[in-house]
Design a binder for these strands. Structure first.
Length: 374
DNA sequence: ACCCGTTCAGCATCCACATAATTAC
DNA sequence: GTGTAATTATGTGGATGCTGAACGG
């Protein structure tokens, strides 16, 4: 069927499932009718196409593994979890077992419609009180997508997050130190023990407050984080933190904090790759230990100002970017158009053509006009 | 199985650019 | 003869348009 699913079957794909439609962004919902995983944008587009499509029942993708449809909502964690993740997470300790979980009802209609009240988002379906502005708070999907894209652009490597989340993040209690590599927003002083690092992974998501893109680690958030650290156990805290971070999100536009980091994974701007991947090269499987040492845990810590600057740069770049093909060398274009072809491919010029070309070589210079050089 | 739409490799040639070599002082 | 700057020569990689194959839905 799908590549991702095939690879899933093999168990070799640790990345968040990508949208079956655009194949660039991380999926956020699962459409049962279509048997397809869709990102927010594609979901809105596909299921807004007609009435029939809008009636498709969808469920949010598990916030932890981001690969399976969520089946349960943990009220304590304010997290939608698939059965597998739910079982793993809530069997971790007694406190977790006491979490109240309710089945997630499928959602139909437009999840990302312009109506501010259209909070068919997961929190609504999950009867959560937190404001749910995921892609719909301001009614401007474009803006939301921009935020997500900017966020992913800022992330050192969004895919890594989801990767490691899938590798037992907050599940087995094992901490993949590599997660810290993607946790660019965290500060050094926020490094804890292995267990606390699990909690720590929630920080970047929350810190997307401010302008919904910039992972701002405000003092308030920090304090909150520390308080939470004291009050909750590890994984629970991580999820509580996710729930609480909604309060920090700008306009409440971001609620799916886990998936946020993986949205538009496939659309990593070049600058991101060059600027960030250098210090955060994704290690091949089985080599994570190489990056587990403290020196590599937080190789690049972006100050809030720098993050903001990056966001501004990104937005400016996005404003000016053009997707249509741009001709850098008109002369080459002119040559290419003149060039003989065989089945569309460039073909060698015949000797006669070369001779003719040589004969007119002087006239070319004097204004034959075929070879405009700019 | 078939259709439709999208993506991409492949081709030859030219040119911008970098480097090496040469020349002038 | 030596050192430096300027000029020239050489090599290399990228860009260019069109077509068909491959692929997914």
């Amino acid at each position: 069927m799908l590549k991702e699913e095939i690879s899933d079957a093999g168990g070799g794909n640790d990345w968040a499932r990508v949208c079956d439609t655009c194949r660039s962004a991380a999926c956020t919902v699962y459409c049962r009718a279509d048997s397809a995983y869709l990102c927010a944008g594609c979901d809105a587009r596909v299921h807004a196409a007609n009435r029939v499509a809008s009636r498709h029942e969808r469920v949010w993708v598990c916030e932890v593994c981001e690969r399976a449809p969520a089946a349960l909502l943990c009220k304590a964690d304010a997290a939608s979890l698939c059965t597998t993740c739910d079982a793993e997470i809530h069997s971790a300790n007694q406190l977790a077992r006491r979490h109240q979980r309710v089945p997630i009802l499928p959602i139909s209609g437009c999840l990302y419609g312009p109506l501010p009240t259209d909070h068919g988002c997961r929190k609504m379906a999950s009867a959560t009180e937190t404001e749910d502005g995921f892609m719909c708070t301001n009614g401007d999907e474009t803006i939301a997508e921009d935020e997500d894209e900017a966020a992913s652009w800022l992330l050192l490597n969004p895919g890594k997050n989801s990767t490691n989340q899938n590798n037992g993040f907050m599940l087995a209690g094992e901490v993949d130190d590599y997660l810290d590599l993607v946790e660019y927003n965290s500060s050094v002083e926020n490094q804890f023990t292995d267990q606390h690092q699990q909690q720590h992974y929630g920080v970047p998501h929350k810190s997307y407050g401010g302008d919904s893109v910039v992972p701002v680690q405000s003092g308030e958030a920090k304090d909150h984080f520390q308080q939470q650290q004291q009050q909750h156990q590890n994984f629970q805290y991580g999820l509580d933190y996710d729930a609480s971070k909604a309060a920090y999100s700008y306009n409440g536009s971001i609620t799916r904090t886990v998936s946020l980091s993986s949205v538009d994974v496939g659309i990593v701007p070049e600058s991101t790759m060059s600027d960030i991947s250098i210090s955060h090269t994704r290690p091949p499987k089985g080599t994570i230990d190489l990056f587990s040492g403290p020196p590599t845990q937080m190789p690049t810590q972006l100050a809030p100002m720098e993050r903001e600057a990056r966001v501004l740069r990104y937005r400016e770049k996005k404003k000016t970017r053009k997707f249509e093909k741009t001709i850098r060398y008109a002369s080459r274009k002119a040559y290419a158009e003149m060039r003989p072809r065989i089945k569309g491919r460039f073909a060698k010029r015949t000797d006669a053509e070369v001779e003719v070309d040589q004969m007119f070589s002087t006239t070319v210079i004097t204004g034959y006009g075929i070879v405009p050089s700019f």
